[in-house]
Simulated assay, not measured.
Amino acid sequence: MLCEFGNLCINISLARHRPTGTGVSCPGPTYNPFTWLYKLVHCPQYTYMIGAWLSLSVMTQTVPVAVFAALVSVQMLLWARRQHGKYLSQVNNGRRFWKTAVVPFLI
């Protein structure tokens, strides 16, 4: 439930975000604690979704759910890497280059 609520907060943040007109711009953290993940990653919506699927896999302890969660995670990692590349190529200020795509400090 926590990951799903975090994903909802991120999606609301993305819906309210208005680009500056220069192309892709990365939304930032707001007063909502679930959006603070923007300080570490560029695509926190994928972080929360992967966490939700992996949590469901652990809770059900079934092989089909685990395989589906793994496949969904791989697909979301690919989408996040592509979006991360867009952010890096279009946002060139010094404080954003260290962010990762999905998992803080790893991917």
Rank of each mutant, 00 (worst) to 15 (best):
M1D: 07
L2Q: 15
C3V: 00
G6V: 04
G6Y: 02
G6D: 01
C9I: 00
I12L: 04
S13M: 01
H17S: 02
G21W: 09
G23D: 11
C26K: 03
Y31E: 14
Y31V: 11
P33H: 07
P33M: 09
P33N: 08
F34E: 00
T35W: 02
L37A: 03
Y38A: 00
L40A: 07
L40R: 02
V41A: 04
C43H: 02
Q45E: 06
Q45W: 05
Y46H: 14
Y46T: 01
I50Q: 01
I50C: 05
G51N: 08
G51A: 12
G51H: 07
W53Y: 11
S57P: 10
V58W: 14
T60S: 13
Q61L: 13
V63T: 08
P64H: 12
V65R: 03
V67Y: 10
V67I: 15
V67A: 13
F68A: 06
A69L: 04
A70M: 08
L71S: 05
V72S: 04
S73M: 04
S73L: 01
Q75P: 01
Q75M: 12
M76H: 15
M76T: 04
L77P: 03
W79I: 07
A80I: 14
A80T: 12
R82Y: 10
R82G: 07
Q83K: 14
H84D: 15
Y87W: 06
V91R: 08
N92S: 08
N93S: 08
N93L: 02
R95E: 15
W98P: 01
W98E: 11
V103Y: 13
P104G: 11
I107A: 12
I107S: 14
I107Q: 12
